[in-house]
Deep mutational scan, measured.
Amino acid sequence: DESNKPILLPNESQSFERSVQLLDQIPSYDTHKIAVLYVGEGQSNSELAILSNEHGSYRYTEFLTGLGRLIELKDCQPDKVYLGGLDVCGEDGQFTYCWHDDIMQAVFHIATLMPTKDVDKHRCDKKRHLGNDFVSIVYNDSGEDFKLGTIKGQFNFVHVIVTPLDYECNLVSLQCRKDMEGLVDTSVAKIVSDRNLPFVARQMALHANMASQVHHSRSNPTDIYPSKWIARLRHIKRLRQRICEEAAYSNPSLPLVHPPSHSKAPAQTPAEPTPGYEVGQRKRLISSVEDFTE
């Protein structure tokens, strides 16, 4: 099969070098950035008060330690540790928490760990991170309901609301924008112990962030949302095809390698009803078989 044979790379090609550099910018793992907010007593309706908090309760602090690993920003190499735009020179604080497994990295933009500057009256330095995160974990210690939209931002799609209760338990629920209701189930609340709260809140936030990324990708319907490693695979396959075309153009005697095509017509299947918005969006999480067989 010609399409699977190794090909020689061009010795000097600026377009090839640019493509390789672009490939280096696509990590081999999925990345997520999640905002974390603490809401104190009497702050449920005040964005400024929430963003001005420099610490929270003892249970909130224990919750943070379970979310991930504490890292010092100045020691991080952005090409190895995903920071979601946090500055490593102290502009966004000294520490944050991050978490990773074999296929993804997540960083938490924690408002109480970011510096509260006197010259920044409206807390814009914090909002440029927190307001651009799709998902926020809100530790609501106010005793009042927290409403979506209290923290203004164009991309605040989903809130994971943590409400501490007695007996070391917590109520965990989801809020989302109306255009996200087909992807996020907000109907079920959970009672979770303090011990298990970081794991549950983190998983709910990661799932909500993946759904938000799919939702946000609708602005470019021709580019369905893939995982990062599938995006790398697609980029490599496009690069291979372009090299083959350039080689055939410079030397017409060489065969032009095309991806294999299936001449056999697909079997006719009964027509199915058109899937609704929710089903269609969830299918976009699934990769096409052509990603692996071309």
Rank of each mutant, 00 (worst) to 15 (best):
I243Y: 15
I243T: 12
Q77R: 12
T116D: 06
Q281H: 09
T96H: 09
D125Q: 15
N4R: 13
D179R: 04
H235G: 07
N251K: 09
M210D: 01
Q94H: 07
Y139V: 01
M204I: 06
I26Y: 06
F108A: 01
E168S: 07
H258T: 14
S227V: 13
K5R: 10
V172E: 00
Y277F: 12
K283M: 11
G149L: 02
C124A: 14
A49W: 01
A205D: 00
V214D: 01
E72A: 11
E12H: 06
E278S: 08
S219L: 11
K80N: 08
N4M: 07
E2Y: 08
D1T: 11
L67T: 00
Q203S: 05
E294R: 06
D125N: 15
Y60K: 00
G149Q: 10
T274G: 10
W229P: 06
D223E: 09
H32W: 04
L73I: 13
E91D: 09
P266S: 13
T150V: 13
A208E: 00
S44C: 08
K121M: 12
P275A: 13
L285A: 14
A267I: 11
H258Y: 10
P260Y: 12
Q241Y: 07
L165E: 02
T31G: 03
I103C: 10
N4E: 15
Q268W: 09
D133H: 07
E272W: 09
G84F: 03
F292C: 13
K33Q: 13
T163C: 06
S253Y: 10
L256F: 11
T222A: 09
M104L: 15
K74W: 04
G131M: 15
E181V: 09
L83D: 15
E12W: 07
E181A: 07
T293L: 05
L73M: 09
M114C: 06
C244H: 08
S227R: 08
K178M: 06
E144N: 07
V160D: 00
E278L: 06
V39Y: 02
N170A: 07
L113N: 04
D125T: 10
I50G: 02
V257D: 15
E47M: 03
S288Q: 11
H262I: 13
S19N: 12
A267Y: 10
E72Q: 12
L197D: 00
H32M: 13
A267W: 07
H32V: 15
L113E: 05
P10T: 12
Y38V: 00
Q241N: 12
S142F: 01
R282V: 10
E144F: 03
L206Q: 01
V188S: 12
K5T: 15
D1R: 07
L174T: 06
C98F: 09
F95W: 07
R284P: 13
K74F: 04
Y225M: 13
I224G: 05
E62K: 10
F146T: 01
T96N: 04
V107Y: 14
T31N: 04
D179H: 08
N251I: 13
G280W: 05
S217G: 05
S46Q: 05
G68R: 05
D1N: 12
S217R: 05
S219T: 09
Y97I: 15
E54N: 07
T222F: 05
C76T: 08
C244M: 13
Y97F: 10
T112N: 02
I230Y: 04
R195I: 07
T31S: 05
L197I: 03
N251T: 12
Y249W: 10
G68A: 04
N11R: 08
S288L: 09
A247S: 08
H235D: 13
F199N: 02
M104N: 13
I71Q: 09
K121W: 09
P260K: 13
L83C: 11
E41N: 04
P6Q: 09
